[in-house]
Amino acid sequence: MSGLSIRVLKTIAEIAAAEWDACAGDDNPFVAHAFLNALEQAGCVTPRQGWQPTHLVAANDSGAVLGCMPLYFKGHSQGEYIFDHGWAEAYERAGGRYYPKLLCAVPFSPVTGPRLLCHPDADAQAVRAALLGGALALAERHGISSLHLNFLTPEENDFAVAQGLLPRLGEQFHWHNDGYGDFEDFLAALASRKRKAIKRERREAAAPGIEILRLSGNDLTPAHWDAFYDFYMDTGSRKWGRPYLNRDFFTRLHETMADKILLVMARRNGQWIAGAWNMLGSDTLFGRNWGCIEHHPFLHFECCYYQAIEHAIEHGLARVEAGAQGEHKLARGYLPAPIHSAHWIADPGFRRAVANYLNEERDHMLGLIEALDAHSPFRQTEAAPETE
């Protein structure tokens, strides 16, 4: 791209945080230099673990940074939440080599946000074209099978598709703030049966004398993180088999992004027993991980969903994104929302096969979202007000 040059970073520490963040903006904490750097410096993202940082930076003739792209050579498909394991198996059965591949994403974070980061004073289309062109050139130079851009914003997805990448549609469950004054105001918008169920769940979650605190900024201490990390490791080891994050990562996150963190912690008889880690954007609360060392009915729903909704209402946030999967979120006010990714496949035959698969998957996903919408927990607008 005329007037823009692309350079490759082996670590994000090779660029000043101010330069990266001027392009990333303040809306989404996951693309902040501090978050990505904490993953690398803590050793959660390393070549040995199958994550080779290969970030791209676009600069003008004067050397001013106008765009950035979080990019990785990947030796596997773990920690991505956009699943292409089947593609890899099919391609390798046919004699191809799927890995390494190139991935533009935030490691271990199923969160929609900008991926082709542009300085607000730059020509966004030109910067995006330069970054995407640089990634494609890198893929072709190294004979890479594919390039994947995960959890794109709708605008970036449209751009990538216009450049010839294959679109993929998925779904998550998000809660939207319809101008609620408080949690009771939100409950009043629900169908009577759903409203009663949530009230019962909240009562039972607190029934064993459990106290719940929401902690952020200066209220967070290393002791809170020690407890949460125990929860994270216990749940992760049982559910996923191999937790991705280590204790050093949370220390670094606390030191650099405490004001972007919301930790919901539950304790009983003075002992911490469960917790949920969230990140705060400019208008969104992002739910990330949950863990516990004691099991109590509905405590998971209270810490992860209801406390998040209360915090969003109290602080005027527009929505809560509750992470990957989980149709059980629907009954608790979280509605299906589309998520987008875009994919470049080098081999023409394999590209056609993937394109056909994605077309069929898209039809299925649209039908699923429509079916889930039909089971919304909210009262129909034309219905008369309900009584308890």
Rank of each mutant, 00 (worst) to 15 (best):
M1F: 10
M1H: 14
S5C: 08
I6Q: 02
T11K: 10
I12F: 06
I15W: 00
A17C: 09
A18N: 10
E19Y: 03
D26K: 06
D27Y: 09
N28C: 14
P29T: 04
F30G: 03
V31F: 02
A32G: 12
F35E: 08
N37A: 14
L39W: 03
L39F: 12
A42C: 03
G43H: 04
C44N: 07
V45Y: 00
Q49R: 13
G50I: 12
W51C: 00
D61I: 05
L66M: 13
G67R: 00
M69N: 01
L71C: 15
F73D: 15
S77H: 05
D84W: 14
G86R: 04
G86F: 09
W87L: 11
A90F: 10
E92K: 03
E92M: 07
G96I: 01
Y98T: 02
Y99T: 01
K101P: 07
A105H: 08
V106N: 03
P107I: 01
G113W: 03
R115T: 00
L117V: 00
H119M: 05
P120R: 02
D121Y: 00
Q125L: 14
A126P: 04
V127C: 05
A129L: 07
A130G: 08
P154L: 02
E156A: 04
F159T: 06
G164I: 01
L166G: 04
P167I: 01
L169R: 10
Q172D: 10
G179Q: 03
E184Y: 02
A189W: 04
A191F: 08
K199T: 15
E204P: 08
P208R: 02
R214P: 07
L215Q: 10
G217H: 01
T221G: 07
A223P: 04
F228M: 09
F231A: 12
Y232D: 06
D234A: 14
T235D: 04
R242A: 13
R242V: 11
F250V: 00
L253Q: 10
L253G: 13
A258C: 07
L262R: 02
V264E: 13
V264R: 06
R267A: 15
G270I: 00
A274S: 09
G275S: 15
G275I: 08
S282A: 14
S282W: 04
G287Q: 07
R288I: 06
H295I: 11
F298G: 01
E302C: 01
E310G: 12
L317K: 02
R319T: 13
E321M: 08
A322V: 06
A322Y: 09
G323C: 06
G323E: 02
A324Q: 10
Q325K: 03
Q325A: 09
E327D: 13
K329R: 11
A331F: 01
Y334I: 11
Y334K: 12
L335E: 15
I339N: 11
H343T: 01
W344F: 12
P348A: 09
R351P: 10
E361L: 09
R362V: 11
L366V: 14
L368I: 13
L372Q: 12
S376L: 11
Q380G: 15
E382C: 13
E386Q: 15
